[in-house]
Write a protein that binds this DNA or RNA. Structure first.
Lengths: 155, 155
DNA sequence: GATAGTTACCCACAACTACCCACAACGTAA
DNA sequence: TTACGTTGTGGGTAGTTGTGGGTAACTATC
């Protein structure tokens, strides 16, 4: 139960090189190596960004749930397909970078700059520009809902 | 319970050559060789695609379940017939390809392009065009059920 | 048994990827 | 300041991967 049990916080600016690689912040890597978990599962985010889960988190929380869904049900099949289709297992190189897949780069509309945001149990990878406009739009979000959440969680 | 326990994720585009062979993604093959399980069982998918199970998965999960179904029930008989009738055991060649049978190619309406999708414990082989139109239709799927799943599983 | 069609196995090559090394920028400590 | 380690970025190379096609073995049919 140390601080380092895969809790990601903070925001970091990096570049994506010609080969589609992004750096994972050293801080994040350190909190992983403790778990000897040098691997991420990256996939489409619900927002226009890329999600990256440490392999252990993906396996225990997502994959397990997916495995338990019956394939007889068409809704289940569709859901599994959506979740897994864009997911890929990547580990970082000696320099601490992971390779992104073309589909995910397109989904997040990434080109040269990348913003990496710690989201507690996962990591988000954004195009900084997209994030800006996205947040503009998000201001029209239900303020009531937002405040309710804030009241519950912020201490 | 190692990393290599047959977890298929991701989407890969390949071609079907004149002899009806498709490539199995190298990533998938690697997670198999650990199991010395170089063989797949391919059969009709519930959707218009081909299912491919690693032999070990087919034997332990599907075959067992089919055996336990009573043949008194006509629905059971029909179901077993559908599952087994089109199933064939194939192993891949030195280049990592498997041969598809004519019936399955027709069922999935495959011609030149194939999209291989990891579905956790099995693999789906789609005609990319068919998948597109299929997903269009799928949007009319019960959104409520889908969202319930999403809320439970996505973290 | 001969012939035609099919299947299994092999080789070749282009494209890509993983792995490695190099180096500049930065921070830290003596 | 200087020396040293770490971090982020770029690029080269060797090995792997995907695709096409050739040849020999096998099957089936007459």
């Amino acid at each position: 139960m140390s601080i380092s049990e895969n809790t990601f916080t903070g925001e970091f600016a990096y570049t994506i090189d010609a080969k589609g690689r992004v750096n994972i912040p050293a801080k994040f890597r350190q909190s992983l190596s403790a778990d000897s978990d040098q691997t991420f599962v990256i996939t489409k985010g619900l927002d226009p960004c890329i999600y990256a889960y440490p392999l252990s988190v993906w396996q225990s929380q997502i994959e397990g749930a997916l495995r338990s869904l019956s394939s007889i049900n068409a809704v289940n099949r569709q859901f599994i397909r959506d979740m897994v289709r864009y997911a890929s297992t990547v580990s970082f190189d000696k320099q601490g970078r992971i390779p992104l897949t073309q589909i995910l780069i397109q989904h997040a509309d990434l080109s040269h700059d990348a913003l990496i945001i710690g989201m507690v149990n996962k990591i988000e990878i954004w195009n900084p520009q997209i994030l800006l406009t996205f947040e503009e739009q998000a201001k029209t979000i239900e303020q009531t809902d937002y405040n309710e959440l804030a009241e519950k969680i912020i201490i």
